[in-house]
Simulated assay, not measured.
Amino acid sequence: MLTKHIISGFLFGLSVSLISWTVGLILNSILAKRRYYQKLSHLNFITSSKLNRRIGLRYFKWVVKNTPFKYFNTQLKLGPKNKDLRQIRYQMTLAETSHLIGFILVMLVAVYYSITKGLVFGSFVMLANILMNLYPSLLQQQNKRRIDQLIRKLNNVNRDTVR
């Protein structure tokens, strides 16, 4: 019985998390038109690179880079077609915020199912939500910090060449 709740909770969590991506995109496109959206581009839940390593973000990054997930949002890649760091950062903010919206929505679903179906079922819905929504958002925050460093370096180089 416990195994059934674990498996069904995780699979339900995966499917609800996938649906939350679409809902997150829709709600994010509405939010992006608001004045306060710029403040969302500077969210930083985990600033410590040590803590990022402890929670396994580097393994998650490997999974994203080496599985079909790498084809999901190709606008986030730096390359010959995509050189504008500010535009890449903006796309990262869109992806991060969409995942955060999805995370909150699925968290509400997980709480509901924890109460109605049981704590084990709800916990595994939440585990899937963490993997499918929270970790991608944390990865985007980490990548935005790296992009910000690159932008600062390029601005310093450009300032030095003007002098």
Rank of each mutant, 00 (worst) to 15 (best):
residue 15 S to Q: 09
residue 111 V to G: 07
residue 76 L to P: 09
residue 125 V to K: 06
residue 145 R to P: 04
residue 162 V to A: 13
residue 120 V to C: 08
residue 55 I to D: 03
residue 22 T to D: 06
residue 1 M to R: 14
residue 107 M to P: 03
residue 131 L to K: 01
residue 28 N to T: 06
residue 42 H to N: 14
residue 124 F to C: 04
residue 111 V to T: 12
residue 58 R to F: 14
residue 160 D to Y: 08
residue 76 L to Y: 13
residue 10 F to C: 07
residue 130 I to A: 00
residue 28 N to S: 11
residue 31 L to V: 05
residue 76 L to R: 12
residue 94 L to H: 08
residue 81 K to L: 14
residue 55 I to V: 12
residue 22 T to C: 05
residue 20 S to M: 01
residue 28 N to E: 12
residue 151 I to K: 04
residue 17 S to R: 04
residue 114 S to D: 02
residue 5 H to K: 14
residue 75 Q to P: 01
residue 132 M to Y: 06
residue 54 R to Q: 11
residue 51 L to V: 14
residue 81 K to T: 15
residue 123 S to A: 12
residue 48 S to V: 11
residue 126 M to R: 04
residue 33 K to I: 03
residue 21 W to G: 03
residue 115 I to R: 03
residue 109 V to R: 09
residue 70 K to A: 09
residue 35 R to H: 11
residue 22 T to P: 00
residue 19 I to E: 05
residue 43 L to K: 11
residue 153 K to P: 00
residue 90 Y to G: 00
residue 119 L to F: 12
residue 118 G to V: 03
residue 40 L to E: 07
residue 64 V to D: 06
residue 68 P to Y: 05
residue 107 M to K: 13
residue 46 I to A: 08
residue 140 Q to L: 06
residue 82 N to D: 09
residue 153 K to R: 07
residue 102 G to L: 08
residue 149 Q to L: 05
residue 93 T to A: 10
residue 156 N to H: 13
residue 122 G to F: 06
residue 81 K to E: 15
residue 24 G to C: 08
residue 59 Y to F: 15
residue 84 D to Y: 14
residue 70 K to W: 13
residue 4 K to R: 15
residue 117 K to Q: 12
residue 56 G to I: 02
residue 52 N to M: 09
residue 79 G to C: 13
residue 109 V to I: 10
residue 132 M to V: 11
residue 62 W to D: 07
residue 146 R to P: 03
residue 119 L to W: 13
residue 92 M to Y: 06
residue 18 L to H: 08
